[in-house]
């Protein structure tokens, strides 16, 4: 670092924090996206979302390190497997609790999360692993700021994924049918849309997105069975954005990521972990529907 110009140094730090905050925020945003997709469709809040991320990271790690599969192939395999797992989860377990009190759904998904963690520690061990990726420990200096490829890969990956999802939900027949099934289940049935299948697909997409987030996160954070607790912050991000709004989930995620990194750097020790929740409380007090939430009234 060039200490001759302390002002520039501070600017460097800020840019670095912005980059890292954006990247971490993207991960929160992706997990929050999974929360929102499932909630909009089935009105279930899936507290195992973070653990699906953990499973994705572990699965990719297993393919890369144990079986020597290439990174991109391993990524595709991990996403496909976790997505399939999500669909099966919906078809076998979660479909049964639709319409039950929200409390039992919360208990069920928290329980599932615990099961996934145990499964991971049995299958892969409870040590801490690093996933070698093409982006690991590489950096490019842009205008004096060291830009690490890991963080850039997260941001680029998130933007690309969101573009693909947006195109899928807006322009394809199945994507529109998923939206339709989320908005009005009964009418979707009347249209001949196989609603149950659509819900399973939504679960698959949410789980797949979580798996991608896990693989993107792996080089930055280390992989262990508690990786899934990131889901709590992602949940805060989803609420911040107004549970039920997809752009809100992403903006909420990025907001929380930035707040977390900046409060970690400039506020006393310990604030990093609570700052996000403090902001969440303030936002909910001022604007209870969240940043992007709309109070929708049904037209009679």
């Amino acid at each position: 670092m060039r200490s001759a110009h302390p002002g520039e140094d501070a600017l460097d730090t800020i840019l670095q924090l912005v980059l890292n905050g954006l990247a971490v925020g993207c991960i929160y945003g992706l997990v929050a996206l999974g929360f929102v997709l499932i909630y909009k469709a089935t009105e279930l809040v899936n507290f195992a979302q973070g653990d699906l991320l953990m499973l994705g990271a572990f699965t990719c790690y297993m393919f890369v390190v144990w079986y020597g599969v290439g990174y991109w192939v391993a990524l595709a395999l991990a996403v496909a497997l976790v997505a399939l797992f999500g669909a099966v989860l919906d078809a076998t377990i979660l479909r049964r609790v639709i319409g039950q009190p929200q409390f039992s759904v919360v208990m069920l998904t928290i329980g599932l999360g615990a099961i996934f963690r145990s499964f991971a520690s049995i299958a892969w061990g409870s040590e801490i692993y690093t996933l070698p990726t093409p982006f690991s420990a590489r950096a490019t200096r842009v205008a004096g700021v060291a830009v690490s490829h890991e963080y850039v890969s997260i941001i680029v990956g998130t933007v690309a994924l969101c573009a693909v999802l947006y195109a899928f939900f807006t322009f394809t027949r199945v994507g529109l049918a998923m939206q339709a099934a989320s908005q009005n289940q009964l009418a979707a049935y009347y249209m001949g849309i196989p609603v149950k299948l659509m819900f399973s697909l939504i679960w698959a997409i949410s789980a797949g997105v979580a798996a991608i987030a896990g693989v993107l996160l792996a080089p930055v954070s280390l992989i262990d069975i508690n990786l899934g607790f990131i889901g709590l912050k992602a949940f805060a991000a989803a609420v911040l954005g107004g549970f039920g709004s997809i752009p809100g989930a992403l903006v909420g995620g990025v907001t929380i990521g930035l707040i977390e990194l900046f409060s970690g750097a400039y506020l006393p020790q310990g604030f990093k972990d609570v700052a996000a929740y403090v902001v969440l409380l303030v936002v909910l007090a001022v604007r209870p529907q969240g940043m992007f939430g709309a109070i929708v009234r049904k037209k009679v």
Partner: peptide
């Protein structure tokens, strides 16, 4: 029971699902 957040045309296309 229309799909409130889909456009009119998208609603019609859903009818032809």
């Amino acid at each position: 029971e229309v799909f409130p957040f889909l456009s009119v045309r998208e609603n019609l296309m859903m009818g032809a699902f």
